[in-house]
């Protein structure tokens, strides 16, 4: 007897969640960012972001089906970070990295923020 550890299970599960998102299947919240709507799964948002954890862990917010973020949040950067949550890939480029850092700080995604800071430092 033994334990068969499926090494790619976490990635397979996350890929399926991203497929559900792309088909708006079982998405249970719409995140409104400066006029753009993003459909997502609360469980993924809460698992990846301290900000969403603090919002949805309040019982009165648990059933929210829409949430508007602070207008200072850049929708392009939010989209990048949402893709990161569902793929583990963080697309950084010189033009957006500072705004992405600010958005990651806002969403309380500290490890991503640290990566943005290291990216900025490596560029100078």
């Amino acid at each position: 007897d033994g334990c068969f550890q499926f090494t790619r299970h976490a990635g397979d599960v996350l890929l399926n969640f991203n497929r559900l998102r792309s088909r708006s299947m079982l998405t249970d919240v719409t995140v409104q960012v400066d006029g753009r709507d993003f459909h997502a799964h609360k469980a993924i948002l809460v698992a990846c972001s301290g900000f969403f954890y603090s919002v949805f862990m309040h019982p009165e917010n648990a059933n929210l089906s829409a949430i508007s973020l602070d207008p200072k949040v850049d929708p392009e950067c939010f989209s990048l970070l949402l893709d990161f949550m569902y793929t583990s890939c963080l697309n950084l480029n010189d033009s957006l990295v500072l705004a992405t850092l600010n958005t990651a700080v806002y969403l309380q995604m500290e490890h991503v923020a640290d990566t943005c800071r290291r990216f900025i430092k490596s560029r100078h």
Binding site: D1, G2, C3, F4, Q5, F6, T7, R8, H9, D12, V13, L15, N16, R19, L20, S22, R23
Partner: peptide, 21 residues
Amino acid sequence: YEGVNTIKEMGRSIHEIPRQD
């Protein structure tokens, strides 16, 4: 989950949800 007798299964672990039906 690194037990003494853990066998690493490298293949897919679950079904793949299609991009569309």
